[in-house]
């Protein structure tokens, strides 16, 4: 049953990719049309929407300010992301806007569906945790794209305030709070000569499974520094491939938590839309180990 669904998702992924490749040829064919310079940043240099709604890769925020608004401009994006692993799925939607290539505000809502695991735990089949995230990011210095004559990255700091709607259950499993704030510092650099983008982020967090399982726990209840990293290789103006890593705390005695990995392909046929497909490995989640599957995200914006 689960295996079958996994195959179906893979098929959907493959179809989407094939569709993408066909459209890429179309995009390449009309590459001479300068009329689509709608706003001031270069294609794919705003990143995509990460799982908590900030501009970044799929799992981790980048120092880049989201949207295609550059200095003196304003831009906005909306996204929808679906993550399907064997025993759970996550629906995630949100929006962000970037001002003057300096400040980014974001909101996101995550709905984590426990499917059959909810029934096994006595919560009911399809029991869901819902979490709202409000994010802010400020670029401190550097320009990841233009400063190509120095190694100096773009550096930003940010915060993500999260609140979860299942306080009673979170307390029952050992979490200390149903809300919390992550703080992070991100350094991002595009090495244009190598067509390579690198990001390193350090996040200070108490969140269990990014907050889906609450904040703090019986094992630890203090902020811990966690490393997150992304590497992306630009294949063309419209296509990038890459991989990500997100280190996570392990605060709850009853539910071991693992670091997350993904490998992704991102496609931006125009500045108004991007699609990201990833294979994500999320490790143990509550009572189910080795959770992995497809991550798919669509972003639209101006």
């Amino acid at each position: 049953m689960h295996k079958f669904r996994g195959k179906k998702m893979l098929l959907v992924g493959a179809l989407a990719l094939a569709g993408g490749l066909v459209s890429l040829q179309a995009a390449a064919a009309d590459g001479g049309d300068p009329a689509d310079n709608v706003s001031g940043k270069l294609l794919l240099t705003g990143g995509v929407s990460q799982i908590e709604g900030s501009a970044g890769g799929g799992l981790t925020p980048w120092a880049l300010i989201g949207s295609y608004g550059t200095q003196g401009q304003f831009g906005a994006n909306a996204f929808y992301t679906r993550v399907n692993v064997q025993d759970y799925h996550l629906d995630d939607a949100g929006a962000m806007f970037g001002i003057d290539n300096r400040v980014e505000f974001s909101v996101a809502q995550q709905r984590f569906d426990t499917e059959d695991v909810g029934a096994a735990l006595g919560l009911g089949r399809g029991f869901s945790f819902r979490q709202n995230v409000i994010g802010v990011k400020v670029r401190l210095f550097g320009d990841a794209v233009l400063d190509q004559d120095s190694w100096m990255p773009q550096v930003s700091v940010g915060a993500q305030y999260k609140s979860n709607n299942q306080g009673a259950i979170l307390h029952a499993i050992g979490a200390k709070s149903d809300h919390g704030t992550d703080y992070y510092i991100s350094t991002t650099k595009l090495f244009l000569s190598q067509s390579l983008l690198l990001d390193a982020t350090v996040r200070f967090t108490k969140a269990n499974q990014i907050g889906i399982l609450g904040f703090g726990g019986d094992k630890h209840n203090s902020y811990q520094a966690e490393f997150e990293g992304s590497i992306a290789y630009l294949l063309s103006r419209n296509w990038a491939i890459g991989a990500e890593y997100r280190q996570k705390p392990n605060n709850l005695g009853i539910a071991k938590e693992d670091d997350w990995y993904d490998a992704f392909v991102a496609w931006a046929p125009t500045k108004h839309v991007s699609l990201t497909l990833a294979y994500a490995n999320l490790g143990n989640i509550v009572i189910k180990d080795n959770q992995h599957g497809l991550y798919a995200s669509v972003q639209v914006g101006f």
């Binding site: 120095s150 190694w151 650099k189 090495f191 390579l196 690198l198 490393f227 990293g229 890593y245």
Partner: peptide
């Protein structure tokens, strides 16, 4: 894995600045 990523970043960085 953290160290590897950082090292990759540093190598790429020095290549660019050397150029």
């Amino acid at each position: 894995s953290c160290a590897l990523l950082l090292a990759a970043g540093l190598i790429a960085g020095t290549t660019v600045s050397a150029q």
